[in-house]
Simulated assay, not measured.
Amino acid sequence: MEMRFRILSGALLMAAFSAHAAPNPVTVFSCAYWDKSTDNVEKLDKCVEVKDGKLKFLPALFAKTRDVEGMSWVGLYDYMRAAGLMDADYYVRSPESYLSVVHFDNGPDWFVEGLVRSRQNGKVGYWDDNFRNRIAPQFDYGWQFKEGRALVCNGCKPQKDGEHTALVGGEWFYIDKSGQKISDVKSGPF
């Protein structure tokens, strides 16, 4: 009996060690990027590695992409579609410094009044150009800032309108750059 226990314990330890020691697979995805030599959107087949759910942008991207104020735009459409998610755009500073931004009007959201929108865990928030969160992701949707305020909504729902999507219902209001509610809107304008 004791011998069986030792054999079984040894087998379990070997299986656990093998499972623990097995390398985590790395998956490589393509991306869209703005090419500095052609000044067009191009596709790079080996753009980003994904390991343990973390992205690492590859050196080939930085050799080709157009850099604007220390950032490059990258569209990770194949990666997102493989995960069953909607298209996503990123601003990238280095292989491991990046920010997912709202995909808007066929491309990445842009910085307006120093802030850009990002969707995190299903909610929209605002980040600065150093990828620091300035207004926590807490809104179902939010527009870009204009003259120091942004229109946001909670409880609004997307509704298809031909090839476009409108947002209906919910509570609509304006926020300031600190994220504080500054005025209500009686009904959603979109």
Rank of each mutant, 00 (worst) to 15 (best):
L8M: 14
S9W: 15
H20D: 04
T27G: 00
V28N: 04
C31W: 04
C31I: 02
Y33Q: 00
D39K: 15
V41C: 08
E42N: 11
K46C: 07
C47A: 10
E49M: 08
E49Y: 02
D52Y: 00
G53S: 04
A60N: 06
L61G: 02
F62N: 03
A63S: 05
K64S: 08
R66D: 15
G70N: 07
G70I: 09
M71D: 01
Y79N: 09
R81W: 09
A82G: 07
G84A: 06
Y90M: 01
L99G: 04
L99P: 02
S100E: 15
S100R: 12
S100Y: 04
D105F: 11
P108I: 01
P108D: 04
F111E: 02
V116T: 09
S118R: 08
Q120H: 09
N121S: 14
G125E: 05
D129E: 02
D129Y: 00
F131P: 01
A136N: 09
F139S: 10
D140M: 05
G142N: 12
G142M: 09
Q144G: 00
R149G: 06
A150C: 05
C156N: 12
Q159I: 08
Q159Y: 09
Q159K: 15
D161R: 12
H164I: 07
H164S: 12
T165K: 04
G170Q: 08
E171Q: 10
K177Q: 15
K177M: 15
Q180H: 13
I182R: 11
I182C: 13
S183C: 03
D184M: 10
V185Y: 12
K186M: 14
